[in-house]
Write a protein that binds this DNA or RNA. Sequence first.
DNA 1: ACGAGGCTGTTACAATTCGTAAGATTTGAG
DNA 2: CTCAAATCTTACGAATTGTAACAGCCTCGT
Lengths: 234, 234
Amino acid sequence: MSQLLVSILDDEPEIRQILSDALEDAGFRTQTFARATEFEASLRKNTPAVCLVDLSLPDKDGLTLVHRLALEQGAIVIIVSGRAQVQDRVTGLELGADDYIIKPFDPTEVVARVRAHLRKEKAPAQSQHETASFNGWIANFESYVLEDSEGEQTPFSHAEAEVLRLFLESPKRLISRAQMQEMLGGAAGESFDRAMDVRISRLRTKLKEDPKNPQLIKTIYGAGYIFLGEVDWS
Amino acid sequence: MSQLLVSILDDEPEIRQILSDALEDAGFRTQTFARATEFEASLRKNTPAVCLVDLSLPDKDGLTLVHRLALEQGAIVIIVSGRAQVQDRVTGLELGADDYIIKPFDPTEVVARVRAHLRKEKAPAQSQHETASFNGWIANFESYVLEDSEGEQTPFSHAEAEVLRLFLESPKRLISRAQMQEMLGGAAGESFDRAMDVRISRLRTKLKEDPKNPQLIKTIYGAGYIFLGEVDWS
DNA sequence: ACGAGGCTGTTACAATTCGTAAGATTTGAG
DNA sequence: CTCAAATCTTACGAATTGTAACAGCCTCGT
């Protein structure tokens, strides 16, 4: 159940089918939409890891949609379009798309490109930062020590560090369990979810979170977690 | 503001010139190399932000170079190749390249793609307005907390947030059940109505509404709901 | 080798969320 | 006023998440 979700927005049923089949064969979960309004509705529920969007939509301007998705929500957006002019591609990319694939396309290549973008998101630049401060805390990833505003120090483990780093690298963004699994290289399965629960629980304890009302690590029922906090790497 | 460095590795002088010109016009600094060994030597001194690499090199296997650069060093690598087969592209991307541009290319598009990859690397999140105040209440959609005029805080759930956000985005306007279903991506059917009733009921409780005479969420019998209230997003 | 201690996943159970069902209540037409 | 439809509320249960307890594993120092 925890595979990465790819949303496909295209008005042609055939295209939807081809993309959906190829991506599911490659191990992704997919959602398809024929119209932008449906797609936007789904965004309130699920956060897809990647969005494949056709620009020629019946009910909305695709470019503004891409712009909102990519720049405001930070999603990975790949335009799949029949418009092959260089100018189209350039404006698409400048408005925030991460890639621009021209129809007709080869499904294999689409899958490869989706994977390439996901890989990059997972391993952003050589993370040479080793300490981060947030809301009075200082996390040191060299010494594996967490220091609170009074200077009291608590060590944290490697497993805790993985989760904490994930949160600190993407604050104020919903992180689904599937994304965690992807980024932490967890083996698929039911047990991963429980293990992640436990890791987060232990991390919350060290961060002195009130279990009833956590301030930093928020749970979104049925969706994932959000790390709130003003993070400052140094 | 120091300019970003782009390294270009290609055995054809013309190509090097075209790419270098286009990128420098776009505000980048460039370094060009004809052979892989020179390029590798330069890596020890400078760390380019992006590498444009041709695969058909005289002195080395381009693919292993790409692999080392992208996966081990975490650099942004864009392959620029004359080999247009889908298979070439797929293996290039799978070995770690972030993009694959086919010759002949349009320099404008290359620049746009370079920019797109750089943008993604450094601009992960950008959240829009997250709090709204109305009639003495403050709703915070980051922390999922509702605060009344006395400062008392009540958490609200994700499902409640969806409804509340819908109301706050369209105050003083009739919202029909059909619209809610559309916006919230609910499955059609009788059961959706009941579920929405319950959500609204719970929301009303948290807003301390008098069931007999609600001030904020008004029911329009047979039509839908209206949210009254002076909403102010910030 | 041995045992202490820490780390981590697993299991079992508690707590929370949220939709569904069912009965109560309200609304508005006739 | 009467009644049917629409809506509200409460209670319950399935799914999801939290956490305590346990066990296996690894790393130490002795």
